[in-house]
């Protein structure tokens, strides 16, 4: 009977997608178990302060050039685009306001997040995956340390602290970029522009940007550590962990920025 064949086909499609779906749900569950366990170790003493400090240096300090460069150019391009795009409103106050709001609410945190995901996320994932593949993580466990506490927790603490700071610095540099274009290319009045910037500076925007940055810090470190920690044997294991962590954390950054914005301005 024709409808039986159809039903068979339907069931088969359902079966394969079902399997994929179950695998997908299982890996999400797996990730959240890792997330919970990592969070537990973040709060559990003793803390490896030397490790945390090394990570802060690596994530915070050494990311400054790339974050500064991206936000600087974003500020400049924003000023230019606003001026060209909104010819009706190209006053000091409009340009300053748009540059300010775009940088503090969105571009500062997101660009910083993406840059750090590329730079630090990849590095964390590769480092931990290599340690997994070469049995260093197994060795840690036999030498009186907990790998989660010694290896993972410092990275999460440092990311959570550093990325908001990076975003604050990036925001400042981005606004400076806008200012330079406004004054030297668009020939705006410096004091009027600065005045407008100060007037429209909103605490809620800064808070929102900082919350985003902290969430991105968690996303980048958790995702990268997760993929590194669960890397499969062999060189492909390291490669897979690295690319997956960058792709997944970037996607999660862009998704969560929407969710946080909606929560703030719902």
């Amino acid at each position: 009977m024709w409808w039986l064949t159809l039903l068979d086909l339907f069931l088969e499609i359902l079966g394969t997608t079902g399997k994929k779906f179950i695998n997908f749900v299982a890996s999400i569950g797996h990730f959240f178990i890792f997330f919970g366990s990592a969070l537990y170790w973040v709060f559990k003493p003793p803390w490896y302060f030397k490790k945390i400090f090394q990570q802060i240096l690596d994530i915070g300090y050494f990311s400054l050039p790339v974050v500064g460069l991206t936000t600087f150019f974003s500020g400049m391009v924003l000023a230019l685009q606003t001026y060209n795009g909104f010819t009706d409103f190209n006053s000091e106050s409009t340009v300053a306001r748009i540059v300010l709001a775009s940088i503090t609410r969105e571009l500062g945190p997101v660009l910083t997040g993406l840059m750090v995901a590329g730079r630090i996320g990849a590095k964390m994932a590769a480092e931990i995956a290599t340690m997994r593949v070469t049995e260093q993580i197994d060795a840690l466990g036999t030498l009186g340390t907990r790998p989660m506490q010694y290896l993972i927790a410092p990275k999460i603490i440092a990311s959570f602290v550093c990325i908001p700071l990076l975003v604050l610095i990036g925001n400042t540099i981005g606004i400076l970029g806008g200012y330079i274009i406004a004054i030297y290319k668009l020939n705006f009045n410096p004091s009027l522009y600065l005045y407008a910037t100060m007037e429209y500076l909103q605490l809620i925007d800064i808070i929102q940007g900082t919350v985003k940055a902290a969430v991105f810090g968690l996303i980048i470190s958790m995702v990268s550590c997760y993929f590194g920690y669960n890397a499969s044997k062999g060189a492909e294991g390291v490669g897979f962990a690295t690319t997956s962590s960058v792709v997944i954390s970037s996607v999660m950054i862009l998704t969560s920025t929407y969710i946080i914005t909606a929560l703030f301005f719902g």
Binding site: M131, T134, E135, Q136, D138, A139, T142, G144
Partner: peptide, 30 residues
């Protein structure tokens, strides 16, 4: 496990630590 001395087939030395830090790792932890 602290009473055991273990070597892995491929060494499993910590590549971010110097050799002496590797050697005394367990003792320095205690």
């Amino acid at each position: 496990l602290l009473d055991l001395g273990i070597t892995f087939q491929h060494g499993a030395l910590f590549d971010s630590l110097k050799n002496w830090e590797n050697i005394i790792f367990k003792t320095a932890n205690k």
